[in-house]
Computed example of a mutant assay.
Amino acid sequence: MQTLMNTTAALLTVLGIFVVLALPALLGLRREARIDRELRAAQEGQNSSSKPTEPSTATWYAEGRRSKKLVSS
């Protein structure tokens, strides 16, 4: 009877450690899936608009600065 209790305690300990180690990864996967859904929904909403959007001047300037940095380094 004592052996069964030791085995059960060891099994529960291993399962507990597994849950503690796997939980962050599972939560990260869930978060990534939510972000992917939000991005898809935003892209579908953007594609459904009839008027194409122009980037703002600030965005255009920042993109130019970024590409120059990449080329010069």
Results as ranks from 00 to 15, higher is better:
residue 51 K to I: 02
residue 17 I to T: 01
residue 55 P to L: 00
residue 33 A to H: 07
residue 32 E to A: 15
residue 42 A to P: 13
residue 25 A to P: 05
residue 22 A to S: 12
residue 38 E to Y: 15
residue 17 I to Q: 00
residue 68 K to Y: 10
residue 53 T to A: 15
residue 52 P to R: 04
residue 62 A to Y: 11
residue 60 W to V: 00
residue 61 Y to N: 01
residue 15 L to Q: 03
residue 30 R to P: 14
residue 57 T to P: 11
residue 35 I to F: 15
residue 50 S to Q: 09
residue 50 S to G: 13
residue 27 L to M: 01
residue 28 G to N: 08
residue 48 S to F: 11
residue 35 I to P: 15
residue 31 R to M: 06
residue 36 D to G: 14
residue 49 S to V: 05
residue 69 K to T: 02
residue 24 P to N: 03
residue 26 L to H: 07
residue 32 E to N: 14
residue 16 G to R: 01
residue 14 V to A: 08
residue 56 S to C: 15
residue 28 G to R: 07
residue 31 R to N: 05
residue 35 I to R: 11
residue 40 R to G: 10
residue 32 E to P: 15
residue 60 W to Y: 05
residue 22 A to P: 14
residue 64 G to H: 04
residue 46 Q to D: 03
residue 17 I to M: 01
residue 14 V to S: 06
residue 57 T to Y: 06
residue 46 Q to M: 03
residue 31 R to A: 08
residue 50 S to F: 09
residue 46 Q to C: 06
residue 52 P to G: 13
residue 60 W to Q: 04
residue 28 G to E: 09
residue 69 K to E: 04
residue 44 E to S: 14
residue 39 L to F: 13
residue 14 V to P: 10
residue 27 L to E: 00
residue 47 N to G: 15
residue 50 S to A: 11
residue 27 L to C: 01
residue 41 A to P: 14
residue 29 L to R: 07
residue 38 E to V: 15
residue 20 V to K: 01
residue 30 R to K: 11
residue 24 P to G: 07
residue 45 G to R: 03
residue 26 L to G: 08
residue 15 L to G: 04
residue 39 L to H: 09
residue 34 R to F: 13
residue 36 D to R: 09
residue 57 T to C: 06
residue 31 R to C: 06
residue 39 L to G: 12
residue 55 P to R: 00
residue 67 S to E: 07
residue 67 S to H: 12
residue 55 P to W: 00
residue 50 S to H: 10
residue 46 Q to H: 07
residue 67 S to V: 09
residue 58 A to K: 06
residue 68 K to C: 12
residue 61 Y to T: 00
residue 15 L to E: 03
residue 42 A to E: 13
residue 50 S to D: 11
residue 32 E to T: 12
residue 40 R to Q: 07
residue 69 K to S: 07
residue 20 V to Y: 00
residue 20 V to S: 04
residue 60 W to P: 07
residue 68 K to L: 10
residue 54 E to F: 08
residue 17 I to A: 02
residue 57 T to F: 14
residue 22 A to N: 13
residue 51 K to E: 04
residue 37 R to M: 08
residue 48 S to N: 13
residue 67 S to Y: 05
residue 44 E to I: 10
residue 51 K to G: 09
residue 19 V to Y: 05
residue 28 G to K: 06
residue 46 Q to Y: 07
residue 66 R to L: 11
residue 39 L to P: 12
residue 31 R to S: 08
residue 15 L to F: 09
residue 56 S to W: 10
residue 55 P to Q: 00
residue 31 R to K: 05
residue 37 R to A: 08
residue 37 R to H: 12
residue 32 E to K: 15
residue 43 Q to G: 15
residue 63 E to G: 02
residue 40 R to I: 06
residue 14 V to R: 04
residue 45 G to C: 12
residue 24 P to D: 01
residue 68 K to G: 13
residue 61 Y to C: 03
residue 19 V to W: 03
residue 18 F to G: 00
residue 56 S to P: 14
residue 34 R to H: 09
residue 27 L to S: 00
residue 41 A to G: 13
residue 23 L to F: 15
residue 66 R to H: 08
residue 15 L to C: 06
residue 65 R to I: 07
residue 34 R to T: 13
residue 14 V to Y: 08
residue 67 S to T: 07
residue 44 E to V: 10
residue 54 E to T: 02
residue 36 D to V: 12
residue 67 S to M: 05
residue 57 T to N: 05
residue 29 L to T: 13
residue 17 I to C: 02
residue 17 I to H: 00
